[in-house]
């Protein structure tokens, strides 16, 4: 576990130094929000309509940003074959997976926390229930990342590379996106945590199941 943290810290240090991924993720999410803002500019200010649109807009931008983050998560390890260097360390591959997962979740979470106020400003919309929202976003991101990283490890071996990732990822994260969108909608409409228990439970189950399975299967993606 400690070693997973070392890997995560190493990843975050690298990322904050180069800011390659952070920059493109932030700019990209800004653009997504702006495009939605333009296409829905007629209804901006109409609280009820925005409330209907908000969950979808937010999670579309999160899902897009996640594909960027996830598709690049192994690029540092592939360069100079650092992944082999990690495999030469006395840790099991599950710990490597956990480490990469922690750092990817952190990065995405940072970007998502920037998207929320941005959305609020662009759509003149006051967001309520922020703590619940943060919880939903965290669980949703964890769900997307825990299966996404495994798929990313698959796609780095393929001819089409990162292009393939969304094709594989989106069908599999439907069970994350749906409860996340529903619960976000409920919270924005003024619901409380007890209204979204079912959704949170499903998200939690998804995270646990796919974390366990991906951790086991990750070994097979990097073996030769």
């Amino acid at each position: 576990m400690l070693k997973s943290f070392h890997i995560a810290i190493k990843d975050l240090r690298t990322e904050f130094r180069t800011k390659q991924m952070l920059n493109s993720m932030i700019v990209f999410s800004l653009i997504v929000i702006v495009i939605f803002g333009i296409s829905f500019s007629d209804v901006a200010g109409d609280m009820e309509v925005i409330e209907q649109l908000a969950p979808g807009i937010l999670w579309i931008s999160f899902a897009f940003v996640a594909t960027i983050g996830i598709s690049r998560s192994f690029s540092d390890e592939i360069k100079n074959r650092c992944i082999d260097g990690l495999r030469m360390c006395p840790v099991d591959t599950g710990a490597i997976y956990t480490g990469k997962m922690l750092s990817t979740i952190m990065l995405l979470f940072i970007v998502e926390m920037l998207v929320i106020p941005l959305f609020s400003v662009m759509f003149n919309y006051t967001i309520q229930g922020v703590p619940e929202l943060v919880l939903i976003i965290f669980l949703g991101t964890a769900g997307i990342v825990c299966v996404g990283l495994l798929l990313s490890a698959i796609t780095i071996n393929s001819r089409s590379g990162e292009l393939l990732l969304p094709v594989l990822l989106f069908p599999l994260i439907i069970p994350v996106i749906i409860p996340a969108v529903i619960s976000t909608g409920k919270i924005l409409a003024g619901g409380s945590i007890s209204d979204i228990i079912d959704e949170l439970r499903l998200l939690g189950v998804y995270v646990i199941i796919f974390y366990v399975i991906s951790r086991i299967l990750f070994e097979y993606t990097i073996q030769e």
């Binding site: 190493k10 690298t14 130094r17 540092d76 100079n80 074959r81 650092c82 082999d84």
Partner: peptide, 13 residues
């Protein structure tokens, strides 16, 4: 210890 023609080093560290 393994030394390969790939360095296993992180460029940005």
């Amino acid at each position: 210890g393994l030394v390969s023609h790939d360095t296993f080093l992180y460029d940005s560290l």
